[in-house]
C-alpha cells in the first residue's frame, strides 16, 4: 500500500532524513520510534506530500506522491504534529470544511462528520470554537479530521502527545482497531505505546533506520527482554550526539 524508497530530505547541509526505505501493507500498524529530532515528522511530512523529498520515491496505493499528488493525498488521512486547527472555527465548522475539501457533499458529508464526531467523542464541544478547546479535545478534533473520509492510509504524528492517561489509552485502542483494515503509521517516543498498538516498529535515529521488526523481535535483542534497553542501546542521547557532531 505504501512504499518508500531511499527517501532523503536535506535542510541546507543537514540531512534530516537519510536514505529511509520501507513498505507497509493493509492491516499493519507501523510505529515510528525515535528520539526527538530523529526525523520522524520530516519523514511523515514527505509521505503526506507536505515536503517534497530531496530524493527518493514515495508510492501510496500505486500513486507516486511527487508525480500525482492529488490521487495519492486522497487516500491519506493525516494528523500533523501538535494537531493544528483554525482557531476561529467551531469544531463542527472545521470538520465540515475538511470534509468538503475531501470532496464530500450534502448527506455524505453530514454522515462523515457525524461518524468522525462519534469516533472521537466530540459531541460535547461540537459548537465550541477551536481556540477555546482543551489540549485533549483539540487533539481529538484534528484526529477526527484525519478520519473524516475513512481513508485507507492513516499517518499520525505523535497522536497521543499531550493527552491524559485515559485519553492515551482510548487513542491507542482506536489506532489498533483502525489498523485492522487500514494502513496506520504513527510516530511516538513512548515505548509502551509501541508495544500496545504496533504490529511492526521502525526505530529511527539521526535520519536513518537503525532497527526494524515486530515489537517481540526487537525485545528479544536485549538480554532482559525490555524494549527501552534496546532503544537506548541503538539510539544516542542528545548530549552524546552533540559531541559526535562536534568531532565529525
Amino acid at each position: 500500500m505504501i512504499s518508500v524508497e531511499h527517501l532523503v530530505k536535506a535542510f541546507g547541509p543537514k540531512l534530516a532524513v537519510n536514505d529511509v526505505s520501507f513498505s507497509v501493507e493493509r492491516g499493519e500498524v507501523l510505529g515510528f520510534l525515535g528520539p526527538n529530532g530523529a526525523g520522524k515528522s520530516t519523514t511523515m511530512r514527505m509521505i503526506t506530500g507536505y515536503y517534497p523529498p530531496t530524493s527518493g520515491r514515495i508510492m501510496v496505493g500505486g500513486h507516486d506522491m511527487v508525480e500525482d499528488p492529488i490521487a495519492a493525498k486522497r487516500l491519506i488521512g493525516y494528523l500533523p504534529e501538535n494537531a493544528p486547527g483554525y482557531a476561529d472555527m467551531t469544531v463542527n465548522g472545521f470538520l465540515n470544511f475538511c470534509a468538503e475539501l475531501r470532496g464530500l457533499q450534502g448527506d455524505a458529508r453530514k454522515r462523515a462528520v457525524h461518524r468522525a464526531v462519534e469516533l472521537c467523542f466530540l459531541d460535547s464541544v461540537l459548537y465550541q470554537s477551536i481556540d477555546t478547546l482543551s489540549k485533549g479535545y483539540k487533539h481529538r478534533t484534528c484526529l477526527a479530521q484525519s478520519l473524516i473520509h475513512d481513508p485507507d492510509v492513516l499517518i499520525l504524528d505523535e497522536p497521543t502527545d499531550g493527552l491524559d492517561p485515559n485519553q492515551k489509552h482510548e487513542v491507542r485502542g482506536l489506532i489498533k482497531r483502525l489498523g485492522e483494515n487500514k494502513v496506520v503509521i504513527f510516530s511516538t517516543h513512548i515505548l509502551e505505546e509501541v508495544e500496545a498498538a504496533c504490529t511492526r516498529v521502525i526505530i529511527i535515529d539521526r535520519g536513518r533506520i537503525v532497527a526494524s521488526g515486530t515489537p517481540a523481535e526487537l525485545k528479544a535483542r536485549s538480554p532482559e527482554g525490555k524494549l527501552d534497553e534496546v532503544f537506548r542501546a541503538i539510539t544516542l542521547p542528545d548530549t552524546v550526539k552533540v559531541k559526535a557532531e562536534a568531532r565529525a
Binding site: 506530500g49 490521487a71 501538535n82 483554525y86 475538511c98 470532496g103
Partner: peptide
Amino acid sequence: RLGTMELLLTMPIT
C-alpha cells in the same frame, strides 16, 4: 503560525 498550512496543503487540492 497555527500550523494549519500543513493540513491545508496535504488535502487533495493544489
